[in-house]
């Protein structure tokens, strides 16, 4: 039965095999005339009968800073997986602007196209120096051959220095990334994200394990990014969310439970029930 289904899936006329598609053309401007830069519509994902996402619909505006909260298992990370191409949804559509269908693209294409992602657990290249980490993340030709002959230009070097300063790692530029503290790794990863010049930043739990001071710095950094970039932050730390949020979306059991300002959301009886239990 399953075989038949997959055969049918393979022969569908409205789909094109990935390798036959022309490469996405990101040089033409992203069409965000209608406001939203990211359209997530009716997306469902299930693993072994468990519905991680259930007809999730979400719109993110260009330049917006959006916080997404929700209890464990609400589908926050799965949502990010879908947007960045790591997980293919069972149904639904995800569009980047009005002209790019993200479901047709693979992870690296999405990343090149301008959606950056920070993982829940800080992931940096431990065996490379901080400088090299940023260098690799930098927006440039990402194909194999050019990278064999790649030389940093002065301009690119300046850009790296600029980001180093922004994430306060200038003094550590030559250190191995693996030797950084937890909070520094979080920042380095945010720095790497910024090197990609993304239109959208997906940031998964940026302040986990940070000291109070670091948290405050991070809040400052993220708010300063909004406007030039759209920033989506998934976070458990309510104080942090309150300090940066303009709009908050609450996810529950794979779909949107409530959306609005922090105060409105916190007073929503359904949200209170979900968070405090029956």
């Amino acid at each position: 039965m399953k075989l038949l289904d997959s055969a049918r899936e393979g022969l569908r006329r409205d789909r094109v095999f990935d390798f036959m598609l022309p490469p996405p053309n990101f040089s033409e401007d992203l069409d965000t005339r209608h406001g939203p830069i990211l359209y997530v519509e009716d997306v469902s994902v299930s693993f072994d009968g468990f519905r991680a996402l259930n007809n999730l619909t979400l719109y993110i505006n260009d330049g917006e800073l959006r916080c997404i909260i929700g209890p464990n298992g609400a589908g926050k990370t799965t949502m990010m997986d879908v947007i960045t191409g790591r997980t293919r949804p069972d149904s639904g559509s995800v569009w980047f602007g009005q002209n790019i269908d993200l479901l047709r693209l693979s992870e690296h294409q999405i990343a090149q196209g301008g959606i950056g992602r920070k993982f829940q657990k800080p992931t940096v290249f431990e065996h490379l120096s901080v400088f090299e980490n940023l260098e690799l993340a930098m927006a440039s030709d990402k194909r194999v051959w050019p990278n064999l002959w790649f030389r940093l230009t002065g301009e690119q070097r300046d850009r790296i220095d600029e980001i180093l300063q922004l994430v306060r790692l200038t003094d550590h530029a030559r250190r191995r990334a693996g030797a950084l503290s937890h909070g520094q790794k979080q920042w380095l990863e945010i720095g790497m994200l910024l090197m990609q010049n993304p239109r959208v930043l997906l940031v998964d739990e940026p302040v986990a394990g940070m000291t109070f001071e670091e948290t405050e710095r991070t809040a400052e950094l993220l708010t300063s990014l909004a406007g030039r970039h759209s920033v989506i932050v998934v976070e458990h730390d309510m104080a942090f969310v309150r300090s940066i949020a303009r709009t908050v979306t609450v996810l529950h059991q794979g779909s949107v439970l409530a959306e609005g300002s922090m105060d409105a959301v916190q007073n929503d009886p359904r949200v209170i029930e979900v968070y405090l239990g029956e």
């Binding site: 690296h108 990343a111 992602r117 993982f119 992931t123 290249f125 690799l136 990402k142």
Partner: peptide
């Protein structure tokens, strides 16, 4: 980099 963190590399835009 991809030896140490493959998906990070992928999300940096490398195939």
């Amino acid at each position: 980099a991809l030896r140490d963190a493959e998906s990070r590399t992928r999300f940096c835009g490398y195939k």
